Amino acid sequence: MLDDRARMEAAKKEKVEQILAEFQLQEEDLKKVMRRMQKEMDRGLRLETHEEASVKMLPTYVRSTPEGSEVGDFLSLDLGGTNFRVMLVKVGEGEEGQWSVKTKHQMYSIPEDAMTGTAEMLFDYISECISDFLDKHQMKHKKLPLGFTFSFPVRHEDIDKGILLNWTKGFKASGAEGNNVVGLLRDAIKRRGDFEMDVVAMVNDTVATMISCYYEDHQCEVGMIVGTGCNACYMEEMQNVELVEGDEGRMCVNTEWGAFGDSGELDEFLLEYDRLVDESSANPGQQLYEKLIGGKYMGELVRLVLLRLVDENLLFHGEASEQLRTRGAFETRFVSQVESDTGDRKQIYNILSTLGLRPSTTDCDIVRRACESVSTRAAHMCSAGLAGVINRMRESRSEDVMRITVGVDGSVYKLHPSFKERFHASVRRLTPSCEITFIESEEGSGRGAALVSAVACKKACMLGQ
């Protein structure tokens, strides 16, 4: 009897593995994704193909990295998701002549009506938060230079001027797309009239992360975010950046690689679950690469896999709870928690219980395998993109072996128990001629924006502006 049951459990697990095998990517698959990513990057950089390229390769006008001589107080704003952060950054000489960066910050959550109302409502709310922060720190009387981390696709015309191309991540505030974001912020500050600010720089969160990590390690020339969304930036040779005049030196390019796949480059790798996630998203047909990796989508992918296993009578005796059938019910943090389970399955059992399920031991094991399959594919897909960037940098610099540091931020990278190990191992397999160091950014977005502002202020002083 026991043997029969054991055989049935083994057969069930084997069927589960057959279904989950769809998520496995072979090294040849990853090399294919990497080569296609490089081709799209090239198209994004070139003037004649930029418009139709899915990977936009947006110039950021960040050319210099901090040298350690900029000092002063800077205000930093960070808008990239449902939370908005205001930070005071003091850049100065530390002990023994070292450079020191001290920060104080406060988080504000953005109400739904500000995210989806008008641009005026959104930026009025942001300036209200700045006003509140300055009151708390008794700094209303000071006109501070301000660095703005704005983590949406922007076409820069200068370091302090950028046109919002399109909202992502659930934002829909009308009247912002096609307009200068810094102008919208300046107008809102003017409307309030109770404080003055000098907006000197606007950067993407990947750029802010790279600059913040450069402060720790001067070989950091790539910034990457794996959180709600997924994106990367890197220092490109100016001669390859056709959208900006000049051939000397390097400029940081914001790849906006989340949109890779929007022209069909990933079609052969998309599964039924991916198509369902895409169809029910706020932007169907867009940001397809990001939807395979980002935390906004990972939990939902797992939920759809679990429903398939229920329908195949391989999980929960073929019956799903009402909660499990509800879109968004299986949160991405559950994926991390399930994979963090120590082996007694308590954590998995508790999560499934909150979803109205009474799982068996085998159910718990199957749910864990589903989570591992989805998150491992995410790590491997992400590795193909980064390997594409790094191999490109090595080739354009004609280096036999390139040493490089990548600064990384984002909740999936930082909080998932195995993502970074799987990701690092896969990147290294795909970049055999590179020695890569990964560092995690601390308060990256805010500190990085302030350091970019410090560079901009120093330049302005040198130019006598």
Rank of each mutant, 00 (worst) to 15 (best):
Y273V: 13
K39T: 12
E399C: 13
F260W: 06
R155K: 11
E265P: 02
A425M: 11
L58Y: 15
R394L: 04
V310E: 01
I404R: 00
V199Q: 15
E248Y: 08
C233A: 02
L20M: 08
E22C: 05
Y108C: 06
W99E: 05
L315W: 02
A320Q: 02
R155C: 06
D194A: 10
M210C: 05
S418N: 05
H105L: 09
R192G: 04
V86N: 08
L75H: 03
W257L: 07
G178E: 15
R429A: 14
D247T: 09
D400K: 14
V154A: 11
D278T: 01
N231M: 02
V62A: 04
R377M: 00
G92I: 10
T206P: 11
L164P: 15
A460H: 05
V338Y: 02
M8Q: 06
G295N: 11
V101G: 06
R392P: 00
M115P: 03
K420L: 07
I439A: 11
V200A: 08
L271W: 01
G223F: 04
L243E: 14
Y215D: 12
H156L: 07
K104Y: 06
V182F: 13
F316Q: 05
D205R: 12
A114M: 15
S109I: 05
A176P: 11
E157M: 14
F74N: 03
S360Y: 06
R186V: 09
L307Y: 01
K39I: 05
K459C: 05
D363F: 00
I366W: 13
K102I: 13
E443I: 00
E421Q: 09
V55I: 04
K169V: 13
A425G: 08
Y289L: 09
V33F: 05
M34P: 00
V408S: 09
T332A: 14
R85G: 15
R85A: 13
S336A: 13
S76P: 05
S76Q: 07
E443A: 12
R303P: 03
T116G: 13
T82R: 13
E216M: 09
S131E: 15
L30Y: 03
F330G: 01
F438C: 02
D344H: 03
R325G: 12
F419H: 00
G72E: 05
V241Y: 04
T362I: 03
S69T: 10
M210K: 06
A10I: 13
D400W: 11
D217H: 11
K420D: 02
A201T: 00
H317D: 15
G299I: 00
K104P: 12
I390C: 13
F423K: 02
E221C: 05
E112L: 08
S69K: 07
D194I: 06
G299P: 01
L2G: 09
L266C: 01
D247Q: 05
S398P: 04
S280W: 05
S100M: 11
G464T: 03
E319F: 10
L184C: 13
V310Q: 11
A21M: 08
E331H: 15
E322A: 13
G295Y: 12
L79Q: 09
H424C: 09
I348A: 14
L77M: 08
C434E: 00
V199L: 11
V226M: 09
V16W: 15
D205H: 11
W167G: 15
Y413S: 01
D262A: 15
V55A: 02
R155S: 15
T168H: 11
F171R: 14
G44E: 01
S453A: 13
H317N: 08
D160A: 12
L47G: 15
F152S: 15
E300Y: 00
H141S: 09
V55T: 06
R192I: 12
G448N: 10
L164E: 13
K140T: 11
R369S: 11
E27M: 02
G80W: 07
P145W: 10
E399N: 07
E95M: 13
R333Y: 07
F123T: 02
Y413M: 09
L184P: 07
Y61Q: 09
V302N: 01
E443R: 02
R327E: 06
F148M: 06
E48S: 13
M238F: 07
A449G: 13
R403P: 12
E237L: 09
L122I: 08
E395C: 10
G407D: 03
C371H: 01
V226H: 01
S127I: 01
D311V: 08
D341L: 05
P432R: 11
R275F: 10
Y214D: 03
G193M: 06
R377W: 00
F419R: 04
A53F: 03
R345V: 14
G178R: 12
C364L: 05
P66D: 10
G444E: 14
G44H: 01
V310H: 13
R403V: 09
I19D: 03
E279T: 09
Q465E: 06
Y234T: 04
T437V: 14
G92E: 08
E221M: 08
M139S: 06
F74L: 09
E70P: 07
D267M: 06
D344A: 11
L122S: 06
E112W: 04
M210H: 01
E443C: 02
C233I: 01
N231I: 07
V406Q: 01
G388T: 08
E372F: 13
V401G: 13
S418P: 03
L386Y: 04
R325T: 13
S280F: 09
E93N: 14
L88P: 03
I19P: 02
P111S: 11
N391C: 09
G178F: 14
H380M: 12
D400I: 10
I404Q: 03
A11N: 06
V253W: 02
K31F: 11
A173N: 12
S418W: 14
E120G: 09
T228S: 12
V241P: 00
M298V: 02
K172H: 06
V406R: 00
L324K: 00
V338R: 01
M37Q: 01
T149E: 12
L288F: 13
L415Q: 13
Y413R: 02
V91S: 13
A329F: 15
K104H: 09
L25Y: 08
E421R: 06
V181P: 05
D217S: 04
S212W: 04
M402H: 13
E440V: 07
E242C: 06
G464F: 05
K459W: 07
K172A: 14
P145H: 04
A387L: 02
N166G: 14
G183Q: 15
C382I: 10
Y61E: 08
K15P: 11
Y215T: 06
R85W: 07
P284E: 07
E440D: 03
V89F: 07
S336D: 06
K12M: 15
E70Q: 07
V226K: 02
H380N: 13
L352C: 14
D409T: 13
D158L: 10
L88E: 11
Q18M: 04
V374H: 02
Q138A: 06
M87E: 06
E265Y: 05
E372H: 02
E196N: 05
F150D: 09
R63Q: 02
Q239A: 08
L306D: 00
R186K: 11
V412K: 03
C434A: 13
V199P: 11
D4L: 03
Q465N: 01
